[in-house]
Design a protein around this nucleic acid. Structure first.
Length: 512
RNA sequence: GGGCGUAUAGCUCAAUGGUAGAGCAGUAGCCUUUUAAGCUAUUGGUUCUGGGUUCGAAUCCCAGUACGCUCACCA
């Protein structure tokens, strides 16, 4: 490992401390409370006429340091807050020199003393003893502000996005807003769980390693089980396993977990992402719509304390009902094309060409419609919107409308032009399902990557009888983006996927 | 995958083709109520990598790598 100058200096300090009999990484600490608890107790005690002195042992990371001749100030930080340590020669004698010589920003320290207020009124710990808990060798980026010519110059501690994502640990220490995003994310997930649990849903865990992948159209990651000599896929969705559970009599189930898709990375795509899926017996897609509105509203109230959100300058209110747009009507309104009049690929593609639209000419009808939606509808869905009634060709797991077998009871939810969720009245007819699987196989026969093999066992499950039910899937990362006003998915992932930096094995291998 | 852009000290950034700098951090010294501490001095560079042009390259050209934006792809 290559050490820079600053790191060598700190290693030398560790060595010199050892000579003085001081361990830089002791095994145990003697901390007896958190910074917040100590401050709260002190504030409470101050309200008495003659408060008793409060003695505590606190621990944390040194975040600021001001050393003078015979005294020193430093702020230490734990996950509950920050407090100033006040170190004087009066209490510490010669030991103060140890602090001045060997303690640096970033070190974890422990300090015993009495809670006081300094002359400026700041709650502080007047230290009578201190210890190193863990020496930091690499210096944290310095975060400071300075007045230059009347302008506040902010030295952002760490702003290079590459280092921020690759060394998220440093990012979290230095940039407090980052920490806030992940607290919000966890609160959001907790609130969704809470809501589903309150509605009698059962949380379950289904296989991530799957012999047949399905439930979505996406390229999978593949892997191999050595002993079983079996190729396996990382799941691209939970759908087919969760619906098996409805056959088994678990009427309301949900799972929150990771999906993996071997596809492009973008501001709203990461190869692994967190999904919420639920399935509810005896629901149809209209009930799922209502339920979705309630759930997301609940999540906003619980997580943010408000339903008024702003994303990328777009204001929206989750307490209001979402807009509902019928797909056929929506497309007609935006493009003048009534897809009901063009029932095959050729006619639809030729009218689209007449309108001067750019698209791959060979794609099937379903994908043409999908193109119309993503090109002309999605970007206009800035306010929360359900787009509903999707063509059957692109919805192989959704039930057909009773009065129109070419259309399925399916909707997707959008906010700020971004797809957030996808739901339908689930197809529970095993005979139709088999036809649909066969049809999919034909449609994608030329496209190897998306040619999902037929899941015979899933059909077997359905033949035992699956209750009518409504299902729902939502990207948790995207909802977190909306809740934290983050412009890219990487900001809401602790460790977003990045390309290998120094991959020796990749060297000299020509790009395929 | 395409286009555009970025890469310089630990961090944030400067630098007409002509000696590679600043602030913060660091180091040494002074300093008993600081919190942007202050004052004095000072260390620190494979200018992303590899080629090329040139008397001379951080700067211009070519190739590569990583990152960013964007387009394409993506139920």
């Amino acid at each position: 490992m290559e050490l820079n100058e600053l790191e060598k200096i700190r290693i030398e300090k560790i060595r010199r401390l050892k000579e003085l009999g001081i361990e830089s990484y002791p095994t145990r600490s003697n901390i007896d409370t958190t910074i917040k608890k100590a401050c709260d107790a002190f504030i409470k005690a101050e309200q008495n006429e003659m408060p008793d002195p409060i003695a505590v042992t606190l621990g944390g990371r040194m975040r600021s340091l001001r050393v003078m001749g015979k005294l020193a100030f430093t702020h230490i930080e734990d996950s509950t807050g920050k407090i100033q340590l006040f170190l004087r020669v009066n209490e510490l004698g010669e030991k103060l020199q140890i602090f001045k010589d060997f303690f640096d920003l970033g070190d974890f320290v422990e300090a015993h003393g009495t809670m006081i207020r300094t002359k400026t009124g700041e709650i502080s710990l007047q230290v009578d003893d201190f210890r190193m808990l863990a020496k930091a060798i690499t210096a944290l980026p310095a975060a400071k502000e300075e007045m230059i010519d009347g302008q506040v110059v902010r030295y952002t501690g760490l702003s290079d996005p590459e280092i921020r994502y690759r060394q998220r640990y440093a990012d979290l220490v230095v940039n407090p807003d980052v920490k806030k995003i992940f607290y919000t994310r966890t609160k959001l997930v907790n609130s969704l769980r809470e809501f589903l649990n309150q509605n009698d849903f059962l949380e379950v865990e289904t296989p991530i390693l799957q012999p047949i992948y399905g439930g979505a159209a996406a390229k999978p990651f593949t892997t191999h089980h050595n002993q079983l000599h079996q190729d396996l896929y990382l799941r691209i969705s939970f759908e087919l396993y969760l619906k098996r559970l409805l056959v088994g009599g678990l009427d309301r189930v949900y799972e929150i977990g990771r999906d993996f898709r071997n596809e492009g990375v973008s501001y709203k795509h990461n190869p692994e992402f967190t999904q919420l899926e639920f399935y509810c017996a005896y629901f149809d897609y209209l009930k799922v719509m209502d339920f979705t509105e309630k759930m997301i509203r609940y999540a906003a109230e619980k997580t943010l304390g408000t339903t008024q959100l702003s994303y990328n300058g777009i204001e929206f209110d989750l307490s209001k009902p979402w807009n509902r747009v019928n797909m056929r009507e929506g497309i007609l309104e935006k493009t003048g094309i009534d897809i009901a009049n063009y029932t095959d690929r050729e006619t639809l593609s030729s009218v689209m060409k007449e309108k001067g639209m750019q698209f791959k000419p060979e794609i099937p009808r379903g994908k043409l419609i999908d193109h119309l939606v993503s090109e002309y509808l999605e970007p206009s869905f800035l306010q929360p919107t359900f787009l509903y009634d999707y063509p059957w060709e692109i919805s192989p797991l959704a039930k057909r409308k009773p009065d129109d077998p070419t259309t399925t009871e399916r909707f997707e939810g959008f906010i700020a032009g971004m797809e957030l969720c996808n739901a339908f009245t689930e197809l529970n007819d095993p005979i139709d399902q088999e036809l649909r699987f066969l049809e999919m196989g034909r449609a994608y026969a030329t496209d190897d990557d998306e040619n999902n093999p037929i899941d015979e066992d899933y059909l077997q499950a359905m033949r035992y009888g699956m209750p009518p039910n409504g299902g729902f899937g939502m990207g948790i990362d995207r909802l977190t983006m909306l809740f934290t006003d983050s412009s890219t998915i990487r900001e809401v992932l602790l460790f977003p996927h990045l390309r290998d930096r120094d991959n020796e094995s990749a060297e000299g291998v020509p790009a395929v």
